[in-house]
Protein backbone atom coordinates (compact mmCIF):
# COMPACT_ATOMS: atom_id res chain seq x y z
CA UNK A 1 0.00 0.00 0.00
CA UNK A 2 2.21 2.82 -1.16
CA UNK A 3 0.30 4.53 -3.95
CA UNK A 4 -0.68 7.39 -1.65
CA UNK A 5 2.98 8.02 -0.76
CA UNK A 6 4.02 7.94 -4.40
CA UNK A 7 1.17 10.28 -5.26
CA UNK A 8 2.34 12.71 -2.59
CA UNK A 9 5.73 12.91 -4.32
CA UNK A 10 3.95 13.52 -7.61
CA UNK A 11 1.89 16.30 -6.08
CA UNK A 12 4.98 17.87 -4.48
CA UNK A 13 6.70 17.82 -7.87
CA UNK A 14 3.68 19.33 -9.64
CA UNK A 15 3.34 22.07 -7.03
CA UNK A 16 7.06 22.84 -7.38
CA UNK A 17 6.65 23.14 -11.15
CA UNK A 18 3.70 25.49 -10.72
CA UNK A 19 5.63 27.61 -8.23
CA UNK A 20 8.60 27.81 -10.61
CA UNK A 21 6.38 28.86 -13.50
CA UNK A 22 4.38 31.39 -11.50
CA UNK A 23 1.15 29.36 -11.65
CA UNK A 24 -1.20 28.99 -8.70
CA UNK A 25 -0.01 25.88 -6.83
CA UNK A 26 -2.88 26.27 -4.34
CA UNK A 27 -5.19 24.88 -7.01
CA UNK A 28 -3.54 21.50 -6.60
CA UNK A 29 -4.79 19.76 -3.48
CA UNK A 30 -3.99 16.43 -1.85
CA UNK A 31 -5.98 14.83 0.92
CA UNK A 32 -6.02 11.24 2.08
CA UNK A 33 -9.48 10.03 3.03
CA UNK A 34 -10.35 6.41 3.68
CA UNK A 35 -13.68 4.85 2.70
CA UNK A 36 -14.81 4.96 6.33
CA UNK A 37 -14.15 8.65 6.83
CA UNK A 38 -17.43 10.05 5.53
CA UNK A 39 -17.33 13.16 7.67
CA UNK A 40 -13.75 13.97 6.69
CA UNK A 41 -14.74 13.65 3.06
CA UNK A 42 -17.70 15.98 3.45
CA UNK A 43 -15.67 18.53 5.44
CA UNK A 44 -12.85 18.46 2.90
CA UNK A 45 -15.16 18.97 -0.05
CA UNK A 46 -16.85 21.85 1.77
CA UNK A 47 -13.48 23.42 2.53
CA UNK A 48 -12.25 23.07 -1.04
CA UNK A 49 -15.52 24.48 -2.41
CA UNK A 50 -15.23 27.44 -0.06
CA UNK A 51 -11.60 28.07 -1.01
CA UNK A 52 -12.32 27.73 -4.71
CA UNK A 53 -15.18 30.23 -4.50
CA UNK A 54 -12.83 32.68 -2.83
CA UNK A 55 -10.16 32.14 -5.48
CA UNK A 56 -12.72 32.70 -8.20
CA UNK A 57 -12.67 31.19 -11.68
CA UNK A 58 -9.28 30.05 -12.89
CA UNK A 59 -8.13 32.66 -15.42
CA UNK A 60 -6.49 29.86 -17.40
CA UNK A 61 -9.93 28.44 -18.25
CA UNK A 62 -10.57 31.42 -20.49
CA UNK A 63 -7.33 31.06 -22.45
CA UNK A 64 -7.97 29.74 -25.96
CA UNK A 65 -4.29 29.29 -26.91
CA UNK A 66 -3.11 26.83 -24.27
Amino acid sequence: MSGNLKARRRVAILKTIFETLGLDSERVHLEWISASEGKKFADTVKKITEETKQQGPNPIAKQWSL
Binding site: S2, N4, L5, K6, R8, R9, R10, V11, A12, K15, H29, L30, E31, W32
Partner: peptide, 14 residues
Protein backbone atom coordinates in the same frame (compact mmCIF):
# COMPACT_ATOMS: atom_id res chain seq x y z
CA UNK B 1 9.82 8.59 -8.69
CA UNK B 2 10.62 5.03 -7.63
CA UNK B 3 11.00 6.14 -4.03
CA UNK B 4 8.49 7.22 -1.41
CA UNK B 5 8.62 7.69 2.33
CA UNK B 6 6.12 8.15 5.10
CA UNK B 7 8.21 10.74 6.89
CA UNK B 8 8.39 13.41 4.21
CA UNK B 9 6.38 16.15 2.55
CA UNK B 10 3.98 16.67 5.43
CA UNK B 11 3.40 20.20 4.15
CA UNK B 12 1.82 18.75 1.00
CA UNK B 13 -0.93 17.01 2.92
CA UNK B 14 -2.06 13.46 3.37
Amino acid sequence: LTQFREDELHEIGG
